[in-house]
Design a protein around this nucleic acid. Structure first.
Lengths: 195, 195
DNA sequence: TTTTTTCTTGACCGATCGGTCGCAAATGAC
DNA sequence: GTCATTTGCGACCGATCGGTCAAGAAAAAA
């Protein structure tokens, strides 16, 4: 009952996510969000609460998609090693949106907000743990199929994977070329590859 | 001639740097800076120009200090391998200031500002290149003293070092423990250690 | 049709943003 | 002393920030 929404909530969330992703939280103003979504101020506030709530919702959406991407990437691989390698190569591909090096929204949010916002910190830590669970499984698989060194500990290997993807995403912000990214991935992989 | 300054420019810059480091550029307001430095508005503007100029000056100071730290760290080491290892371990130590996980100001600035600010981008890229030159020399040393694998290319190894330190600093923002950091460093080092 | 409920819209709010400016104070030059 | 020059200070500026709200519009319920 009541008057129906004139906008698609998912579409609005998607545009908000893009803005926060490309510009960060502080640098994205409500005016930007209104202009990008085409909504009036009241509508946006009524639908999503305040700026922070909207951001959190956009962040959660981004992270869920990232986890799904990782699952797909790893499951497509022919070996544990190839799974990790293809995910790292994915992270070595500089992401551009409208000429802006967006990097990874998880990394961006971790750097900008995590130290001062407990909710963001919790979300990102949980996400990190989920990602590392997937890395872990993949490493176990790689040890079993002998594509990874038998000495690799799945837990610490998983944390090492996180670290390496984060690092690549930071370098993407400074304009790392795809070639340099790939080169770094191959170098990094030496630490876990089977002898 | 004229009236002499009543404040120490270096001291003011130091405090500004700490604020920008801990809170980022956007989240640090002129009021914060005035309160932290004890200066009046006009004095700060007359001495440093606007907020961005002050930030750039603080950033340059931070980066110079970082390069010096790296030089010291590497030169103290007994081998190329130990040099890289001790620098990575330095980056695995979570930095806290007044309870805030400050991480690394270079990484923070790269993520927050580099895509939208050409000056910041240039400064950080130049810094990255300088750091990688030092890594390179250290890797060459390590190959020569047989502490590193002879197969390691100094250039790509240097970029891999950058990537790994960046990754550790991002994880520091999410509350990485010192133990996990050290564990990751040991895992990562497997990719360059001599067989 | 009337009522109820929800949504849309933009005027409006106080607070704060980065930045300017005029005036008093403090120094060296003369 | 007088003057020129620079600093310290804080009132003041327009713009913009995130956020609220009242009134109108559109649908379902009666």
């Amino acid at each position: 009952m009541g008057r129906p929404r004139e906008f698609d909530e998912d579409e609005v969330l998607e545009r908000a996510m893009s803005l926060f992703w490309a510009q960060g939280y502080e640098a994205t103003t409500m005016s930007h969000l209104l202009q990008a979504t085409g909504l009036a101020k009241g509508s946006l506030y009524q639908a999503f609460g305040d700026k922070e709530r909207l951001f959190l919702k956009a962040l959660r959406r981004y992270l869920e998609r990232g986890r799904q991407d990782l699952r797909n990437c790893l499951s497509r691989a022919d070996s544990g090693y190839e799974g990790l390698r293809s995910w790292l190569l994915e992270n070595a591909r500089p992401t551009l949106a409208q000429g802006v090096r967006t990097g990874c929204m998880a990394v961006n949010s971790a750097v900008e907000l995590a130290p001062h916002n407990a909710e963001v910190r919790k979300i990102l830590r949980d996400h990190e743990r989920s990602m590392e669970k997937l890395y872990e499984e993949c490493i176990a698989r790689g040890v079993a199929d002998r594509s990874l060194a038998s000495t690799v500990d799945p837990r610490s290997g998983a944390r090492w994977m996180s670290t390496t993807t984060y690092g690549l995403q930071v370098r993407a912000k400074l304009g790392m070329s795809h070639d340099h990214g790939r080169e770094t991935v191959e170098q990094a992989l030496c630490s876990i590859a089977a002898a």
